[in-house]
Amino acid sequence: MGCLCSKNTKWTPGYEEPTILAAETPFTVSEVEALYELFKKLSSSIIDDGLIHKEELQLALFKNKNNRNLFADRIFDLFDVKRNGVIEFGEFVRSLSVFHPNAPVADKIAFAFRLYDLRNTGFIEREELKEMVLALLHESDLILSDDDVEMIVDKSFKEADTTGDGRIDPEEWKEFVSKNPSLIKNMTLPYLKDITLAFPSFVVSSEVED
């Protein structure tokens, strides 16, 4: 079957073949193609250059491109694997694949660890956790006293930092999540199983059989 989609696809910077991306991720070829529809929408919302800029991610998450947020910044930084300030299609698909319901739990645990490891030291440190709690308070209506914040951070650290060395290492994090699986609930997006339903038009034009 011929492709009804634009031939311009092949010249989008960072575009990678859906067959290759499907082979490396839990997505089928049709799902990768449907994700390309989503990617095109996100990557053209402010600057139509086929790349997702930080403001475009913020616009999609908050409906407001000026609403800077520590956590959205972390997501952007982790998706921007090449660290060139933009998210390319391949980076988008590979990063989103961790959020697929069928992705290995170990990958979700590792990705969440990296989210919390703000300074990329290989550990989650107390100051990082406090900074994130304060950022959450800033973005929400929740009001907590500084004593309450200290108490929450202390309690969380006491539970997770089993060796008591003042930082949470990947092994401690893994154990902590296994006891508290709700902590990685946001690492699974049920939408990803229905992505071809969300963008059905592209499936008709698919070049490759799954």
Partner: peptide, 26 residues
Amino acid sequence: ANPVSMNAFELISKSQGLNLSSLFEK
């Protein structure tokens, strides 16, 4: 739930910035 009794990670995981389902909203 009383936020003070919650785990910091649980609180943080509710951030809108980490809620990628928003990407799929039309």
